[in-house]
Structures are given as C-alpha cells and as structure tokens.
Design a protein around this nucleic acid. Structure first.
Lengths: 247, 247
DNA sequence: TGACCTGATGTGGTATGACCACACTACTGA
DNA sequence: TCAGTAGTGTGGTCATACCACATCAGGTCA
C-alpha cells in the first residue's frame, strides 16, 4: 500500500527527464563540469542518477541542441561552451513562415552594426584595421561579381563587428548569419540591376573604413545608417518595378 | 557481402536521430506542419519513419528544447512557434562562468535600444506614447524604492522597445531579459548611493519621452547614449570606491 | 626494426516490448 | 441531471540486447 518510497533524498525534485536535465544544468552552472570535460559514460551516469538510458539520452540530446554538450559516437559526451551556431538553428525555425521577418531582421542588423562600429572606433587594433582594409580591397575587386561580391560585403561587415571586441554583439550578429547572407545576396542582385549603385557600394565602405581609422564614432554611425538607408531605397525601388521580387 | 540494403528510397539521408530531426525540420520549414498542429502520436510516427520510439523521442526533446514543439503528457505533441524564452535558457548556459559577460551584454542592450528608440520615433502609436507616459510616471513615483524603481525603469525601456514595432529587436531584447533586470537592479543600487543620480534618472527618462513624442530620432539616440554613459560612469566610480562591488 | 594489420575494449546508437502516468471521453448509475 | 467511473489514447519510463564507431594494444609481415 505504501506508494512513493523515495530511495534517496535528492530524488525529491522532478522525475526522469526533468531530474536529469536539472542535475546536469546545476552541475554546469555551478562549475562542477566545465567546457572540455568528458562526461561520465551514459551507462554509468544513468545508473548513478537512477534513470534509464533512453531518458538520460533525451536529456543529453536536449543539451546538445543548445550546444552545452557535444555527443561523439564512440568517443563520449564532451562539455562545450554554448556557441552561437545553435542560435542559427533557432532563428531558422523562428523565422520560418514569416517572410516579412526577413525585413525586420534588418533592423536588428542595423542596431548591432551601428553599435559595433562605434565600439570599433574605440577598440579596433591594427590587425582589425588591416583585416578591414583587406575586405575593402576585396569589395572593390569583386564589385561586378554578385556571388563573390556578396561574400566580400559580408566579410567587411563581419570584420567590423569583430573589431568591436564585443562577444555579445558578435554572438547576436552571427546568430542572424544565414539571414544576413541572404540580405547581402539580395543587395548584390540590385547592384546588377542598378549600375550606379556600384559606386555607392564602393564609396560607402571606403568611407566607413576611413571613419573607423579616424576613430570618429559619430560620423561612422551616420555613414553606416546612410549606407543602409540607400540599400533600403534601392530595394524599395526594385519592389515597385518588379512586384514579384523579394521585398 | 552486400552491406547497406536500404529498404526505402527516402532513407538515403541520415539514419536514426538525424533522419527524424531532418524530417521534422523539413516538414516545419516547408510549412507542412504549422504552429498549433498536433503531431502524429509517437508510436505511429516512429513506425512511419522506421525508427524506434526512444530515438524519435530524442528528436522531439531536441525540438522541444528550442521551442519548436511542446510535449504535453497525456495530450500529445503540439507544434509551436519558437519563442524567445528558449533563448533565455541558452543565455543562462552561455553566460555561466563568465562574469565579465554581464558587462558586455550591456553593449548589446545599447545597440538594441538605440535602434529601437529611432524606430519608436517613426512608428510609436498613441497607445505606445501613453504606455511610455505611464512608465515615466511610475519611475518618478518609485524613485526612492530600489526594487520597484528598477522594475519601473525596466518597464519604461521595455515599452520603448515595444514601440519600435520590431519583433526581432524585441525578441533579442527579451532574450537578454534576465541579465537586463540585474543590470537595472545594479543601477538602482547606485542611485541609493549617489543621491544626485536620482535627478539624472528622472530627467533622462523625461527627455527620452519628449524626444519620442517629438519624433526626433537623432536627438533621442543621443540622449539615450548619454543616459547609458552616465550610468556607466557611476558604475565605474562605484567600482573604484568599492572594489568588491559588482562592476 | 619498422609499418601495417587486427582484434579487444569502451563508447555512443538503436531496437524492442512492456508497463506506468496523465488527460480526455463516454458510459453508467444514482 | 449530475457525479462518479471505466475505457481509451497519449506521453513517460524502464530493461535488455545488440549494432556501429573510435581507440589502442598487440601481433604480423616486410
């Protein structure tokens, strides 16, 4: 007739999956397990936690999904520091079926890049400047190639965000990586259609680079905003001319 | 000697977990399953996909972790639209063991809010203005209460981001929710220590509100940046006076 | 002696079948 | 009519066996 019969005190919290997840979560947040560690083998761990292997594996998969651990077949389960790549996965799902969202993501891009360029003005090292210069050269040399041009464009902006030396900004920026690349490709399609836009692209990035070198925060911010505004203007124009084109 | 013996053509892709995950992912991205739908029961689905239930459940748990589905005991597995709350979980892990990160998150906050206030100047409705006015009044009336004051402060900034009408910005902003609340609490502790900061807090928010009403993007951005800079200045001063205090 | 092959071992990966727990529904009885 | 209850469908868990991969020690052959 007696029911629960809790074998151990620490079992008081959730059962099964929740228990395992909470345990691992606590271990991680408390620093008991750190990035780089190899987790206890599944068979032993599930026995120690008093759950079955499938349940333990559910928890591990869940943690793997947000990048807390990496499961390697035949090797073991390694603890990792959550990486932005998982946010990419999240955004892929979050932005699905929301075509309008692509446009809205641009606002986040502007937000991050404008703050990044300000920080870059304060913090950019010589190496950052050199990287930006290289990206700038690449933009000039690929101005007529939509694909390579889009990559070069993205590389420049990426280098800019890196120069901000803010991991959080970089994290958010990379999280939107896939969507941003698409945005760059779209823009380059416009370049092909509107010849004079070619000049804008080269000039804008040149001025952005100069502003960073001059460490003129405010000016850099302004130039960047205008750069985005012009792209937006062209996009709008294209949308009017060809309603079937992506907005 | 023959090895693979693929039973069905569609099995060509990954096996087990990967196959299931890829299948569900594709179904979701293609729109075959939409938020609100109830997924096929586990027993039937795993049979249809040719995998075992534990494996299927691993995939479902993984999707549940990023908010794509919600698993309800005794009811079924419901498809959801990924919500920002899962990012909170991610940040909890990502920020663990990185005290310095709290400071860096501030940069993302500045980035998002500065863009948000610009958009708010363009898009704020009367309802948004009223909400901001209410938050402003609340800030004034709770100026001496650290706890309620921090909430009021957060409410004002939250209303500001909402007024931007950008779901992406709001998404990112809320993802940092917990960290931001802590930042507001820290700031209010400073208010208690430095009496004259009280005036700054009230004045700054008043000016932010006025700038939004006047729809003066540029000015609003400037005021907001100064607002953050002053808070940063006080924080630095506090850190010097009391090295044990949170930076 | 050296490189290469091969097996043993430890790890994650999967399958199966049974049973438990919960939510909902429909039936039954008062 | 209503409340209680049994049935059904769903997710939740367990135990065990076996498969697949990675690693390394030991042996084999040149």
């Amino acid at each position: 007739m007696e029911k629960p019969q809790i074998t151990r005190p620490e079992d008081a919290c959730g059962k099964g999956f929740d228990k395992v997840f909470a345990f691992l979560r606590e271990q991680f947040l408390a620093g008991a397990i750190k990035p780089g560690d190899r987790l206890t083998p599944e068979r032993e761990l599930c026995q120690r936690l008093g759950v079955s292997r499938p349940v333990l594996r559910e928890a591990l998969r869940a943690l793997a999904m947000i990048g807390v651990v990496e499961i390697l077949h035949g090797v073991g389960t390694i603890v990792r520091r959550p990486d932005v790549s998982v946010l990419g996965e999240f955004f892929a799902f979050a932005l699905a079926q929301r075509a309008d969202m692509t446009d809205d993501v641009m606002q986040a891009r502007i937000a991050i890049e404008c703050q990044a360029i300000r920080l870059a003005c304060q913090r950019a090292t010589l190496a950052d400047i050199e990287r930006l210069r290289g990206a700038l050269d690449h933009i000039r040399s690929t101005i007529d190639d939509p694909t390579a041009g889009a990559e070069a464009d993205h590389a420049f902006h990426d280098a800019m965000v890196r120069a901000s030396k803010s991991e959080t900004l970089l994290c958010l920026y990379q999280a939107m990586g896939e969507v941003l690349r698409q945005s760059h490709r779209d823009r380059r399609d416009l370049v092909r259609r509107y010849g004079n836009m070619k000049d804008h692209v080269a000039q804008d990035h040149e001025r952005l680079f100069q502003a960073i070198v001059a460490r003129d925060e405010r000016n850099a911010d302004d130039i960047l905003r205008k750069h985005f505004a012009i792209g937006d203007e062209y996009r709008r124009r294209a949308a009017l001319a060809d309603p079937s084109a992506p907005t």
